[in-house]
Design a protein around this nucleic acid. Sequence first.
DNA 1: GCCAACGTTGGC
DNA 2: GCCAACGTTGGC
Length: 152
Amino acid sequence: MRYWLMKSEPTEFSIDDLEQRPNQTEPWDGVRNYQARNMMRDDMKAGDGVLFYHSNCTVPGVVGIAEIAREAYPDATAFDPEHVHYDAKSTPEKPVWLMVDVRFVRKLQRTISLAELRDQPGLEGLPLIRRANRLSVMPVTEAQWAFILSLE
DNA sequence: GCCAACGTTGGC
DNA sequence: GCCAACGTTGGC
């Protein structure tokens, strides 16, 4: 089993939105970065743990836990010219972009903020806290997972 | 294949 | 709203 951190802008899709979805499950569409796509395609398995991270908001940080509910499959929003995530490179015959389904597990009792994570000795290797990191999906080691959740 | 221009991310 | 970082695009 692997662990991940996935970013979402709460104004677009928040941990509360996920909790309220039918089956508490949501397709994670809109990933348009090859590195993130490759990790989803090659390494994400059903049951993997996900730290749900709120970005671009008042207090960016980890706000909840989710899990991978369905492994990578074509992101249909790329096929729709009307959709904001449309990409002409991707077709149903040769899909370029993939998504996974994510299922709600629980909210954290409090937000573990980016600022707090930056202050932790031992998290230096976490891609999230590298300067200006823009990956929206990134791996988290089992030790990092346990350590971050121990801060709760 | 290089690299400047451009667009996006995301913290602050 | 600003802007640094960085991925992508496209001219050459």
